[in-house]
Each structure stands twice: as C-alpha cells, then as structure tokens.
Design a protein around this nucleic acid. Structure first.
Lengths: 191, 191
DNA sequence: GTCTATAAGCAGATAGAC
DNA sequence: GTCTATCTGCTTATAGAC
C-alpha cells in the first residue's frame, strides 16, 4: 500500500484540510459577520479551491452552523451562596479566552436569524439557571434580575470584543471583574 | 397656476414621498440590518419605483447614513450629584421610545463598518462625559467605570429591543430602572 | 418627473474535465 | 479527488423612453 509510505493517510490529510477551512471560516465570520463573508474568501484564506468548501460542508449556511456551534456551557450549581462567584467565572471566560465559536455566533446575532435564535436559546437557559440560583432570595422578579445579569454580560462582552470600546478593550480581566462584582451583587441579592 | 388648485404643491408631494421612503427604509434596516435590506424592498414598502429611491438618495449607503443619522444627545451637566438620575433618564429613553434612527445604527453596528464607527463615536463621547461627571469621586478608573456603564446600557438596550430576550422585552420601564439604579450606583460611587 | 429596460458585477451553487 | 468553467439568480446602479 503506497499510502503507508506517506506520513499522513488520505483520511488524515482530508481531516486537516477540513479543519483549515473551518478555522478560516470562523476567522472571517467573526470579523465580518455572515453576510459579508464569502465562500470564495474563506477558500482563499484556507488556500483551497472554493468548490472544495462546498464539497466538504454542503452550503454556506451549513458551514456557518458548524463554525458557530456553541460549546455547551457547564450548568451552574443551585448553590445560591456561590452564585456571584459562578457569574464572575463565566464572565472571566467571556473576558479572557472566549471561544471563537461563541464570537462567531455573537457577531451575527443581530443580523442573521439563525445566529440570533442560537444566542437567544443559550441566554434563555442562562436566565432560568441564574433565576433558579437566587429564587430563594429574590421574590417574583428573580427572572428579570437574571435577565439583567445576562444583559450586562452581553453588553460587556460586545463592547470588549466586538465594538472594542477603548477602555473596556484595554482593561485587564481583574480590573473589570472587581468593578463588576458589587454591581452584579445588587442583582443577586434582594433589597 | 393650476398647481394651486391641488391641496399639495409639487414640492410638498415630493417631500412626502421622500419621507415615506425614509420611514420604510428605517423600518427595514431596523428589522433586517443593512445587508439583508434591499433598495427594491424599500421601494415596495414605500410603494414607489426602485429607481426613485436612487434618484432621491443617491445610493444605498447614503440612504442608510440618513436613516441612521443619530439625534444629538443632550450633554450631561457636570453635576456629580445628579449623575445617576441623568443615567436613568438616558436609560429611560433607551427603554421607552428609543428613536428609530438609533436602533437602525445599532442593529447593524456589529456587521456594518460605518454603523460601528457611528456607535463607537457616540459611546466614546458618553464615556468622557460620564467619566467627567464622577472624576471627583472615583480615582483613576473613572473612565473604565464610565465604559462599564455604557456597556450595561448597551446590553440592556440590545436585549430589550433587538434580541428580545423575554423578561427584558416584557418588563416595564419602572421595573427595569428600579433594579438597575443600585447597580449603576456601585459604579458611580467609589468604594 | 416617473418608470421601463438593462447594464455590470458578484454571490452561491453545479457539472464535468482531468 | 481536485479544479476549471459555467449556470442561475440577485444586487446596485444607470440610461433613456414616455
């Protein structure tokens, strides 16, 4: 079998090419959004033929779906005591190494219906989790409080990574979390 | 002069048509974003010929620029005492009758470079104003605090009007401002 | 002044040569 | 298996008929 001579099998080569396309796609989708990103540009960035992209992923929509497929978040524990700290951890992830796939979905969340739906679903899940985490403390408005927390995190994430508002883009992880902790605590505690 | 017989002069008719186009354009730009909105769709919504849109506004870009031209915000007074209340007022506007033009720019802020730049400029102005308003109280991090306030307002606005996260979309103006006031106060006061 | 017809370009997707 | 060439459709924008 002459293939055995090569360091990479055919399957392995194919997998790597597919991966290179996916990385290039994410990079462009994150920077330009769904509409302004073309299959041709993705192919050029990945140094493959445009038709290969179609061959491997079927359509632009399917490629986007795969590029923006969100990693499942870890569920919050029901522990109300540690809720704020859990939130800070989540936020920390969003401030630091937010996965490229999440940013891909987020960049197009306002203009691409499917991306919007994805973000909405993840956020609704967060709301119910956060809401449950403080149900004992806050009254009927637990859900609204949770939604506000989600909104704050979205705002900070967008400003830092997508709009790149100067102070938020340049601030360190610690500076931000320190200022935001008391802010979020007013929402996790009643009164 | 036979025109005088008509209730509307030619100039008046023209102005109304132009206005109808602009309203239709805003409506579509707000709902779909810049890329997915076509001149043809705008013309159909305004019940005019597509070429009229070009005739009146020159190009899609110029039409967008006009549709998204932001009303100048009132400057904040330097009064640190009333800062939080000023913020609540601004937020109130954002929660209630946010001008369609602002939403137009916001919807495309993540995917249209010019819209992004517009939003960035307005926000930078807010940051410096809010920062100045609390310079006496907070130390060197006044600018970061101001940026966080702006980020929070952006997050809440986007969730309520664009993503339409259930609890935030349905909550009343008062419910939201009540919960958000203490939250913002942690940022406007040091310690 | 308004609209018909069309130009010119670029997109996603496909068929078939090698 | 990979790429060339092309199809089809839709966009903005324009030129010219009425």
């Amino acid at each position: 079998m002459s293939e055995q001579v090569h360091a990479l099998t055919r399957a392995e080569r194919r997998r790597r090419t597919e991966d290179r396309i996916l990385v290039a796609a994410r990079d462009l989708f994150v920077r330009l959004g769904y509409e302004r990103t073309t299959i041709r540009a993705i192919a050029a960035a990945a140094e493959v033929d445009p038709s290969l992209v179609m061959q491997y992923f079927g359509s632009k929509d399917r490629l986007f779906r795969q590029a923006a497929s969100l990693p499942q978040d870890k569920d919050l524990t029901g522990d109300p005591e540690g809720l704020t700290e859990h939130l800070m951890t989540m936020l920390g992830l969003k401030l630091g190494g937010l996965p490229q796939a999440s940013l891909t979905a987020l960049r197009s969340a306002l203009t691409h219906p499917e991306a919007a739906e994805r973000v909405r679903q993840v956020q609704a899940h967060h709301v119910s989790q956060i809401g449950a985490g403080m149900a004992g403390m806050a009254g009927e408005d637990a859900e609204l409080r949770a939604a506000l927390i989600v909104a704050i995190m979205l705002g900070v994430t967008i400003e830092r990574h997508l709009i790149e508002l100067g102070p938020l883009r340049d601030a360190s992880y610690d500076e931000i979390t320190e200022l935001l902790r008391p802010c979020l605590e007013t929402l996790t505690r009643p009164g």
